[in-house]
Design a protein around this nucleic acid. Structure first.
Lengths: 340, 340
DNA sequence: GCGCGGAAAGCGAACGTTCGCCTAATCAAT
DNA sequence: ATTGATTAGGCGAACGTTCGCTTTCCGCGC
């Protein structure tokens, strides 16, 4: 149908011309600074609004040497937890009038290939990292070090990067401790992938709770999962084969806990009577499983907001001190562990 | 600990100085154009790489009048379907070396408030819209019209905006038709929120399938849902109270179908023997519900990629012809409807 | 010897800002 | 009247590019 041309953007010079002043004066007015008479100030503002003037941040960035934009690097936005994190980060960025430039990195290729250069070209002021596969990527760590403020959701080797996350050890501890309090003695766990820090942390919490209660750690009560429902179902069957008398399972995320519930049901076990289940993350669905899932709430949204806040603080203060922030988690008791 | 200063970025002039040529010549080399001797070309490239030169896209955009960046406006990234869409769009953008600037809009405030100005300031080349609440926002439609290439996932009033989406009517038709083929005659449906186009489309497909089979439409077999699990459970109970003999339920998304399954189980109904259930969207979890959920697969990832492709095409060709693209959907038969 | 064509590289301007410094003009105080 | 301060606004430069137009140099054919 119609084929329209892109209309030229109007600039500060256009406004100046219409208002009969120099464009520099216009700039002053628009930025609130300088000494300009009330009359001309009003006139310029009027003209600017009439013409629909929108400042060009590109040009401003050029002279200011700051883009007021941060890069966000993630591995997979469709991960539910990660997307809650993104929402938190984006909200905080918006609150402080920062733009967020999104880049995904494939699971295989190191982020150095594309994501980082793309962000550098656009001269982001800082980078928010949410890509677990970077946990062991020394190349990335090296690139990031010493160039830009960086905050990561995950551990980055080299220690030059600030980190914001939740307390994984406590998460594992709370879940396990709760089961112990409920009287369970044979408590199995289906872990996340072993290489991940979060898995190691939650595992440490699990062991600590056992230790405190004087319970022995049993290797046969541990099965590695892949964070997915299907894998957790399989793991559940393996565990029950090896230790038929176990009475509780702690899954390293709610998704796997759902797989556990489904496997238990298929095997004719009743939850929580025959076997209690506790997950962690506290996803929306946890309240709607059958039975509703006891879980440890992990503040993903808050983590995102906090990470962005820290990043922007680092940007504005110029400090690149690699701080570590740990956000608290808390237990949410529902029926899968026998209720409150 | 350490407090480091942001190191100055090195520019084309720095490279030129080290290579002993004018910065314009350097620019030529870096962009592949112009007539430069093989010797100096090699030298310049060498120096650029040694110094770690990264072009400044801000400056380039300024003179080129194109930022090679698109804006993405979404209402809620943590929506699973939407996040699949984002992934698709981002991958396509990356493939074509476009940057993606993320903005969320709150459910309440019209996007005109913050999101659009923020994108305009950054001079994005086009906008990808994924915010259902804009379906009836005439103000937004007006702002968008005639200024920039815009592709929307949802309908935008005014007709000036290109749209990419899946075939909602066919989705409703396939789900309902499948149930009819399975021998069901009293087929209830739990719809999405009525105001949404997707709901209206799926509803039309539902009615069309009934019509074709010569089945009467019964208002009491329709209940409005809110896309959420809890609401759908409630709706299921209402439906069964009004029409105890219904034998099938079509939910307007998989999430609600999960709520339906859970409500049916609580009421002692067996799925699919007593009541068949069909959802739509084909989320990951659909394969893991109990029983696994028959659903209509909606290609969210592809939709995102396609939308981005269209947007970039509009940007590069300068055409703002408001095309409408409908992607095909297909039925995925699992056990909740009685299997294949 | 003269002009020509082409290769190689330089130069100036422009893109839309911000910022520091400069110039008038006004006005009160000496 | 001469100063000095204050107010209002202009001017030039810079940020890092791209692009089109010179300029310089060289070899070639007449």
């Amino acid at each position: 149908m119609t084929l329209r041309r892109a209309t030229r953007h109007i600039s500060v010079k256009d406004v100046a011309a219409h208002a009969g002043v120099s464009f520099q004066t216009t700039s002053k007015v628009l930025n609130g600074g300088g000494t300009v008479s009330e009359l001309t100030r009003a006139r310029i503002l009027q003209v600017a609004s009439d013409l629909g003037y929108v400042p060009n941040l590109q040009a401003r960035s050029l002279v200011m040497q700051r883009t007021r934009t941060v890069g966000f690097v993630a591995s997979d936005f469709s991960d539910h937890n990660l997307s809650r994190f993104i929402v938190g980060a984006e909200h905080e960025a918006r609150r402080q009038a920062y733009g967020v430039l999104l880049t995904s990195i494939d699971a295989e290729v190191s982020g150095t290939e594309y994501a980082l250069p793309a962000l550098m070209e656009r001269r982001v002021d800082g980078i928010l990292l949410a890509a677990p596969q970077m946990e062991d990527d020394r190349a990335v760590a090296h690139v990031l070090d010493k160039t830009l403020p960086v905050v990561s959701l995950y551990h980055v080797p080299g220690g030059g990067v600030a980190t914001v996350g939740s307390d994984h050890v406590r998460t594992g501890f709370l879940a396990t401790h709760h089961l112990i309090e409920k009287g369970h003695r044979l408590i199995a766990t289906i872990t996340g992938t072993r290489a991940r820090r979060v898995t190691q942390g939650r595992m440490r919490g699990y062991r600590r709770a056992l230790d405190e209660a004087g319970l022995a750690f049993d290797d046969h009560l541990v099965e590695e999962g892949d964070w997915e429902i299907g894998g957790a179902s399989a793991a559940t069957r393996k565990l029950l084969q090896r230790r038929p008398r176990l009475t509780a399972i702690f899954a390293h995320n709610d998704n796997m806990a759902i797989g556990v519930l489904s496997a238990l049901r298929e095997m004719g076990k009743r939850v929580p009577r025959d076997c209690a289940v506790v997950g962690c993350d506290d996803i929306d669905m946890a309240a709607y499983t059958l039975p509703p899932l006891t879980t440890v709430h992990v503040p993903f949204y808050e983590t995102g907001a906090q990470a962005m806040r820290l990043l922007i603080e680092m940007i504005t203060t110029g400090s690149v001190t690699p701080r570590k922030v740990l956000l608290p988690v808390h237990l949410v008791v529902r029926e899968s562990s026998g209720g409150a």
